[in-house]
Design a protein around this nucleic acid. Structure first.
Lengths: 248, 248
DNA sequence: CGCAGACTTGAAAATACTCAATAAATGTGG
DNA sequence: CCACATTTATTGAGTATTTTCAAGTCTGCG
């Protein structure tokens, strides 16, 4: 649960009671193998889970066999909060690597929200952040060309990793192979490969045995118009304060 | 406020108290001219508003002058719920037509949430729906080609209109000109024009003096793989029920 | 009518895709 | 440790899609 607490803390202060209530929850630690389907789009998701180790993706599979990846989930990410709201999933969640997650029945989360209603505002904030990531994804797909898309995505992932873990490397190991990148970026694997090769020749990234490293972050950011502001919420929530004033 | 109440009702039952509390709010009716900027990305949004009449867009402007439209806002849509959470906007909101909105200071909304904490769950549900729309937008941009994108978007808008207003026409008037469609779909206006012309020739849509009408919805849906399930949340919230059982 | 703005059409260029062949890395069994 | 199979990545050539630029056309309107 610590990961979830840390995530919510980014959006505003947590009261002692709230933390206690969350720690009282009893998540089950589970592991999944690479490629495992954590959630099928056609099944109601009875659980909320949080990534502890490894990466996963949200993706949509089209009838013609194409795949579009909607988001990457990295350690610290919380998933399936929509279960709180009874909404169905319209997409799959699949392990990109071997995976460790903490899993909680949605009912336990609902009970938590009843006891600590103010937490809903923090969950809302988490959703708002997810939305910002999605919006950026839309812009990337709609208005950038291949090489920019690749760079922009690499920078985003890099920054997300460092937000969750300050000394994360700037290296993106085999987790993201060409096909995964292609399905993220709306390109073909071949064209991803070519774009990466071009960026490599230009010295913006360094490729070593398929492993990608951002060589020059500033240059990379300027070449693709990357601005990570959308990852850094500036105005944190002030829920406890409000509670005192407005309740009176 | 009725529009907001109607919107939230789609996600679950509202108690009498909740409705009363919302009706007690005192929104200000405002009008904006076509092209007006309702919200700049660099300003904190101190208001939550709800569209009464007319259309608007959320959009991002890129440094090189390109524009990507992130969402269309139609009557009944509620906007800037993120203000509740203190998050900054990373995009603009612009009136596509002359516009009438109901506007409320965010502080009044926050007070509402303090008095009726369970409402936060419904707002969360509204956000979840917004996210579903964004996800669909990602798939459209990433894995469909021009003609499919156009059709898919037209179908989505058509269905959204009918969800908010049962006898809305299947006609998309001048509101969506070629440039707007292009910025929505990540295409050039010229190519949108060509795609529309092709769909027109194929008899899927009917164009009359720039005004687009869906001629055959079923055929259109099958041609672009449209499935509007993501617009129809199947499992409504059960918050009042929970309140009784879990609180004990 | 004549103008302004938006739409359409054509031709050339850029971008990205497919297919197929090669190369590199990984894994397996001897 | 090496041969071999398997998977993944790269490269080349041809094709498809989309963009750009530029010249027309239509529409609404004073």
């Amino acid at each position: 649960m610590q990961a979830l607490i840390d995530r919510l803390k980014r959006f505003g202060p947590l009261s002692r009671d709230q933390i206690t209530a969350m720690e009282a929850m009893n998540p089950r630690r589970r592991t999944h193998e690479r490629g495992a389907v954590l959630r099928r789009s056609d099944e109601a998701s009875g659980h909320v889970f949080c990534l502890v180790e490894g990466w996963a993706i949200r993706c949509r599979l089209l009838p013609d066999g194409q795949r579009q990846i909607l988001a990457i989930l990295i350690p610290g990410d919380v998933c399936d909060l929509q279960a709180l709201v009874g909404a169905d999933q319209d997409h799959h969640i699949i392990a990109l690597t071997d995976l460790t997650v903490n899993e909680c029945p949605a009912s336990e989360f609902e009970a938590l929200l009843v006891k600590q209603p103010d937490l809903a505002r923090l969950f809302l904030a988490a959703k708002v952040e997810d939305e910002a990531l999605l919006r950026e994804h839309v812009v990337r797909l709609g208005r950038r060309k291949a090489r920019e898309r690749v760079l922009h995505l690499l920078l985003e992932i890099c920054e997300r990793q460092r937000l969750a873990d300050t000394d994360a490397p700037r290296r993106l190991a085999y987790t993201l192979n060409r096909e995964t990148l292609a399905d993220l970026l709306g390109l073909s694997p071949v064209h991803v490969s070519r774009s990466l090769a071009a960026l490599n020749r230009a010295g913006v990234i360094a490729i070593d045995r398929g492993c990608i490293e951002l060589a020059d972050i500033d240059q990379a950011a300027s070449q693709c118009g990357y601005d990570g502001a959308y990852l850094r919420p500036r105005a944190p929530l002030q829920s406890p304060q409000l509670q005192n004033t407005a309740q009176a």
